[in-house]
């Protein structure tokens, strides 16, 4: 059962990374235009960088 000492922190850290990523997307307004983003990914035009 010693393995729990590693596994539980690891699973919590992984989850926290996901939560952090979610906060990041939220702060960068990635939920403002869900329809547009769904279409944009299909566009065959290059963008070199994501527009602000």
């Amino acid at each position: 059962m010693d393995v729990l000492a590693y596994l539980i922190p690891i699973s919590l850290i992984l989850g926290a990374i996901g939560l952090g990523a979610f906060f990041w997307t939220l702060r960068h307004r990635q939920y403002d235009d869900p329809d547009g983003d769904a279409q944009r990914i299909l566009s065959d035009e290059w963008d070199d960088y994501p527009k602000p």
Binding site: D32, D33, G36
Partner: peptide, 9 residues
């Protein structure tokens, strides 16, 4: 300088 379409709105 910039134009950005919001398709949802």
């Amino acid at each position: 300088s910039d134009a950005r379409v919001n398709l949802t709105l």
